[in-house]
Design a protein around this nucleic acid. Structure first.
Length: 885
RNA sequence: GCGCGGUUAGCUCAGUGGUAGAGCACUACCUUGACACGGUAGGGGUCGGAGGUUCGAACCCUCCACCGCGCACCA
């Protein structure tokens, strides 16, 4: 392995291993397996989408869970696929059509247009799938599904028919959220409220029955005045109660004969008399609340805004054909001309925007299909009872709130790309069935909301055998953004159609934001291309970086430095393995308990602790915590301390000891590689194979790929007994390393370069074994290191006091006493502060009487330790001062 | 308006009652036989504010401020 590159170069092996996993169907799930099942369905990305950082986070989490489950011995299904994304995809293709051929979809016709979309899908739909492969995702690609697949589509239609027959689907003319750009209805969830700066227009209207008496009305939408069919006041409002039943003259359209512009003043509780003037204009055709008022008082519905957001003929000659916002300005001008405009006041209000098109939605009366949610009660209680668990748990509350306020779901969309509604018409006859009743029947032109197909995803993607083995899935990993859109609806669909929850747990992770906390978006240009990052740093580095910086359930502030950190980690791992290889010898020799050094036991114990912590973190879905433990164990504990300490043996003479040290190293590394594999699939496979750890294992337990290697087990008592892994070794070695740190500090304070060998003397208070002495010698870069319990140091010799004894740095006349005095003074001050703190507590009689005895004892112990240190340092300080004078 | 998160070192974040932590960044030294994508040592925090509970609060309670998000909404 000596001619392998010094630095980690992931491009040399990532695609190689991925291809090998594919060739050997390592990701393929076998429904007939006797192993316990573990399954995940991917949140299907938009078929025309490209990979962004959010996908990286989402899919890395899923891959970690899938790979971990394989190593736990599960039969794993990670089912991939894509979503047809109705509006988004249709818009993309429409734009392209316009650009390339100057045509609209209407020019082409429905059939031809849909053909175009399919062509687009065939050409671009695979992009994101390939990108997921680059990331290392271990999906069962043989089961890749698309929401417009034939069998999937059939199930969508069958579901519609079933819900229709159950009376849960109905058609009705209702106020819906209308997107004038996409020209389709939207569900409430697709509307985003945004603050908008505008004006509150105050205008007056004359009361017909009392000429000369005017009422002033405040509105943000003067352009809808031609659509007003009433004026509402609160019946309890003393200012206006007397006018109820009378009429006012609606000022617009101007040209309409006056008698056609008389509209009634009605009494309605909805009116808030605190707001504006307490007089409300009622536009039943263009406002949800107004529509309801209109229904209560049988007001006329006058449509003044068309589907495309322009004003209709009914808006009058002045406004018709004007775009709605131009019409607003125009209307205010007209009011002014009529002498009716009282004032315009700047005003900020919330306006619903279309999520996709990012334009204000228009409340609009139209004929749509609605769904009353099925199994809603059960869906709520299954989460409340904890039978279906959200991580983090706080989302349960958000879910509950939504479930408690369910509104019927508007499921029809005036689009062409999607599942066409399986309802057929012939004259007045209506039939709801999957297949056409005959050639003289015409199908409803609308398609279903995309979510009305993807809510079936967890089971509609599975054939019978797959379903029997893998449903319900174990975990769904997604972002809280689609908790209502998708998660809640899947729960309802699963319960309604399979009588079983679709997943055991839902992991809700945050959004990936840029360094300034902004959401990453194409328009801001603040989203790095994950593929660039992969080619620059490697997929493993990207995965590790993003996982390490993602707190559970909180947003991730993405910084490329995190990826660099991942790359550096991989490089460290790479070189740690190179180091092992350089020393040759037998791979994974037997551990010999009689030869284990204190350092060996220490690192084994630390490994055991790390395994426990990692298992616990993964169980709680705190993957960043698991990543941090791996980082700490491998880098700080293994590389910084154990490997450095083991050099005392590896560069020594004792061949038996050497072989044993290598066995320990192999033991640790083979565990580390397995623990890291779910996070870093590529480099761990490369090293697993390269180090020869695969060699003697059965094929299905890591012999062929680390993917199937056994996940490291927490150490049991037998293991600990077998190698005498007593916790006292942790304490001893910790003390040894603490001493080394202090000794190095002495060197640094004395200005001795770390590569310069220098004499240390250890005046030991405990027995120091030859091995421990050589570790001290090595890590202190001491030459020589004298061990002498009787050592009498010349006055003022810098030294540190430790559990194992005192360590002197005799400088033979070169001591900088002035620096020593400064160092020791600082040290003494620090210690005095600590003693003060401990004393303050212990001297408080309440502390002694009320605190638990072990805490009091602990403080006493602490105090003696500090006092011991203090006297030692004071002695040294006095000596240094004496030498100075 | 209601609800949920957050506020700890320059930055990103751990830390649920008992000695304030990590990584990055920073400073100094070091190309020593795995790794400069590295090593060693070091500096740096009145834990958002104010009260309260407690022997003891970053942690528990109350109120407030600011940031983010969700829901609702008065035209």
């Amino acid at each position: 392995m000596s001619d392998i590159p010094k630095a980690y170069e992931p491009q040399n092996f990532e695609s190689k291993w991925y291809q090998r996993w594919l060739d050997n169907e390592s990701f393929k799930a076998d429904p007939s397996s006797s192993k316990p099942a573990f399954s995940i369905v991917i949140p299907p990305p938009n078929v025309t989408g490209v990979l962004h950082m959010g996908h990286v986070l989402n899919n890395t989490i899923q891959d970690i869970l899938a790979r971990k489950a394989r190593m736990d011995g599960c039969e794993v299904l990670w089912l991939p696929g894509t979503d047809h994304a109705g509006i988004a995809t249709q818009v993309v293709v429409e734009k392209r059509l316009k650009k390339e051929q100057g045509q609209s979809r209407h020019d082409l016709g429905r059939e031809k247009f849909i053909e175009k979309v399919w062509q687009w899908k065939e050409k671009h739909g695979g992009i994101i799938i390939d990108q997921l492969k680059k990331l290392g995702c271990s999906c069962d690609w043989s089961r890749e599904r698309f929401t417009m697949d034939e069998d999937y589509s059939r199930m969508v239609a069958e579901t519609f028919v079933d819900l229709y027959n159950k009376g849960l689907i109905y058609r009705g003319k209702r106020m819906v959220n209308w997107c004038p750009v996409s020209r389709t209805a939207l569900s409430d969830e697709e509307v985003i409220m945004k603050e908008q700066r505008g004006y509150l227009y105050y205008f007056k209207v004359e009361i017909i029955e009392e000429p000369g008496t005017f009422l002033t009305i405040a509105t943000t939408r003067p352009e809808t005045i031609p659509g007003d069919s009433g004026i509402a006041v609160n019946p309890k409002d003393p200012r206006y109660a007397k006018y109820i039943g009378k009429h006012v003259l609606r000022p617009l359209p101007r040209e309409l004969p006056e008698d056609q512009k008389h509209i009634p003043i009605v009494a309605d509780e909805h009116v808030d008399f605190e707001f504006g003037t307490g007089v409300l204009k009622v536009t039943p055709a263009h406002d949800k609340a107004d529509f309801e008022i209109g229904e209560r008082h049988s007001l006329e519905v006058i449509e003044v805004i068309e589907a495309d957001g322009t004003m209709s003929d009914a808006a009058g000659a002045d406004l018709k054909r004007l775009e709605r916002f131009k019409a607003r300005k125009e209307a205010s001008k007209l009011l002014e001309e009529l002498g009716l405009l009282v004032k315009e006041e700047p005003y900020t209000n919330n306006v619903g925007f279309s999520e996709r098109a990012d334009v204000p939605i228009e409340p609009r009366l139209s004929e749509q299909w609605f769904l009353k949610y099925p199994s809603a009660e059960a869906a709520k209680s299954i989460v409340d009872s904890g039978e279906l668990q959200f991580y983090p748990d706080r989302w349960t509350k958000v879910y509950d709130h939504w479930m408690d306020n369910l509104q019927d779901w508007c499921i029809s969309r005036q689009l062409w790309w999607g599942h066409q509604i399986p309802v057929w018409y012939r004259g007045d006859e209506v039939k709801c069935q999957v297949d056409s009743p005959g050639s003289d029947w015409t199908q409803d032109p609308d398609v279903l909301d995309t979510w009305c197909s993807s809510w079936l995803w967890p089971f509609a993607t599975m054939d019978e055998a797959t379903f029997n083995k893998f449903y319900p899935t174990n975990v769904l990993v997604t972002a809280p953004e689609i908790l209502f859109f998708w998660v809640a609806r899947m729960i309802m669909a699963g319960l309604e159609y399979k009588q079983v929850k679709p997943f055991e747990t839902v992991v809700l992770h945050g959004i990936v934001r840029d360094g300034k906390g902004r959401k990453m978006s194409k328009s801001l240009g603040n989203s790095p291309d994950p593929l660039d990052l992969i080619s620059q740093y490697g997929a493993d580095a990207l995965r590790f970086g993003i996982m390490r910086s993602t707190p559970r359930g909180q947003d991730t502030l993405f910084d490329e430095q995190n990826v660099e950190l991942g790359r550096n980690f991989c490089n460290k791992l790479w070189n740690a393995c190179r180091f092992r290889q350089m020393h040759g010898g037998e791979t994974e020799g037997e551990l010999n308990d009689s030869l284990l050094t204190s350092d060996d036991k220490w690192i084994l114990l630390k490994l055991g602790q790390a395994i426990d912590e990692i298992d616990a973190s993964i169980k709680e879905h705190k993957l960043n915590e698991a990543t941090n433990v791996l980082y700490r164990f491998f880098w700080s504990e293994y590389c910084d301390w154990y490997v450095e300490a083991s050099k005392a043996i590896l560069y020594g003479e004792d061949e038996q000891q050497k072989a044993n040290a290598l066995a320990v190293i192999d033991f640790i590394l083979s565990n580390v590689l397995r623990l890291l594999h779910p996070f870093l699939p590529f480099i761990t496979e490369e090293l697993w194979q390269g180090m020869g750890y695969a060699n003697e294992l059965p094929k299905e337990q890591g012999g062929f790929t680390i993917m199937n290697a056994r996940w490291p087990k927490a150490f049991d008592q037998d293991f600990r007994d077998c190698y005498s892994l007593d916790d006292c070794y942790l304490e001893f070695v910790d003390a040894k390393y603490a001493l080394i740190r202090e000794g190095r500090n002495l060197r640094a304070e004395a200005g001795i370069a770390s590569n310069k060998r220098v004499r240390f003397v250890m005046k030991n208070s405990r027995e120091i074994m030859e091995h421990d002495a050589s570790v001290l010698r090595g890590l202190l870069n001491a030459e020589p290191l004298d061990i002498d319990p009787e050592f009498e140091a010349p006055q003022g010799t810098p030294n540190v006091h430790s559990e194992l004894g005192d360590l002197y740095l005799p400088l033979e006349g070169l001591i900088d006493f002035e620096a020593e005095v400064i160092r020791l003074t600082k040290e003494v001050e620090k210690i005095e502060k600590e003693i003060e703190k401990a004393n303050a507590k212990l001297n408080n009689p309440n502390f002694a009487s009320k605190a638990p005895p072990e805490v009091v004892e602990e403080h006493r112990k602490r105090l003696t330790e500090w006092a011991d240190k203090l006297s030692h340092n004071q002695k040294n300080l006095a000596a240094a001062k004496a030498a100075l004078s």
